[in-house]
Amino acid sequence: MPTTTPRILLAGGGSAGHVSPLLATAAQITRRCPEAEVIVLGTQEGLEADLVPAAGYELVTIDKVPFPRRPNGDALRFPGRFGATLRSVRTLLRDREIDVVAGFGGYVCPPAYLASASLRRPLVVHEANRRPGLANRLGARRAAAVLTAFEGSSLPGARRIGMPMREGIAHLDRAAHREQAVRGFGLDPACPVLLATGGSLGALRLNTAVAEAAAAFVEEGAQILHVTGRGKAEGLPELEGYQVVEYVGAMEDAYAAADLALTRSGAGTVCELTAVGLPAVLVPLPIGNGEQALNGEQVVAAGGALMVPDGELDAAHLRHQVLPLLRDQDRLATMAEASRAFGITDAAEVMADVVTGVARRA
């Protein structure tokens, strides 16, 4: 049903790994195709409940109905609950005359994918991790386009475009903004800066190791910008050159201030680090299906990062391995070049073009 006004449903939510690329894509759709109507499908419990309306997009919520992993009461109730959710999404697609569904993974995607299939609406799938989740494995079977953040996906017909991200990060010039960013965090531009962060929720092992090693870094003329996660900064040492913050609203400022990052290796983090060309020491989360280690492997192989198993990260490792690296500007420059060569900065634009193109052909 051709239309002069593309009507697009973006499905995804729950975590920042789903919501951030969704919103980055929405922003580029709006910029590149101002007449497009963009609706977001999410839940009331995920980050999207706050972030999507704040970004100016309509959010339609459905119940979170995870697939049961064991036979119990939830398993018995699942068919009825999932069926009701599926019917509500079908109604949404019909009533709003949606031309294309674009999914980013998460609990809302299976009903969105099945509803689009039943109504023969085209589907575009974006997979952030090298090891795809169940929802996107389901959707990729009939998708008009399967787009990924990394090479080597097992999804059929996958094409790497990178991770859609905000313009402020994707097109950051770290060198041009470094001095202002460093001063903004109360640090000295003449001294190297380690950015240590476990994400918005923090990471206990990273926080503990960094706090214990902070004095040694400062004594050697290095600095640390430690983003602890909300509610995780209490009790950490107070040292000049060791700046502790719970949260950074604009991560591009932290990336610009840093010479080296110590982080988890979630897909979004890895893609942002490489887009801005920031060398990193990656510490994969040791739970789940191992996707964080997979996400970082290709960057390590390219020379843009090092990887340390979670169990080996402690204050001694930071003092003996990370601190010398932070002070080796030549090696950091080589790593930064390799990181930037691996990174992709226009994923949001490409994703937006693919989605609107499919919508116009619908």
Rank of each mutant, 00 (worst) to 15 (best):
I62Q: 08
G162A: 07
G186L: 07
T43I: 10
T4D: 14
S116N: 07
R70Q: 15
V60K: 13
G202C: 06
R166E: 07
F82E: 04
A257L: 03
L147A: 05
G311T: 07
I169Q: 02
N295A: 08
V299T: 12
A211Q: 00
T345I: 09
A302C: 08
S200I: 08
A261S: 12
G42K: 11
G73Q: 14
Q292L: 07
V358P: 02
L325I: 12
G266C: 09
Q292R: 11
L51Q: 14
V125H: 02
V276M: 08
S200G: 11
G80I: 11
L92W: 08
L332T: 11
V101P: 09
S20V: 15
G106Q: 03
L147V: 03
V108Q: 01
G13S: 08
M335D: 02
E127A: 06
V248T: 12
G266A: 05
V276Q: 05
I169H: 03
Q28P: 00
E246I: 06
R120F: 07
L47G: 05
Q329A: 14
R70L: 15
F342H: 13
G17I: 10
L326S: 03
A254Y: 09
H177M: 12
R178Q: 13
L206Y: 07
A362Y: 04
A214T: 04
V124A: 14
L195I: 07
S200F: 06
I98L: 11
E234M: 03
A27R: 15
R183G: 02
V101W: 03
G157S: 09
G56C: 13
Q321Y: 04
G202E: 09
S339G: 15
P164S: 10
E291W: 09
G83V: 01
F78K: 07
A115E: 13
S153W: 01
V245R: 14
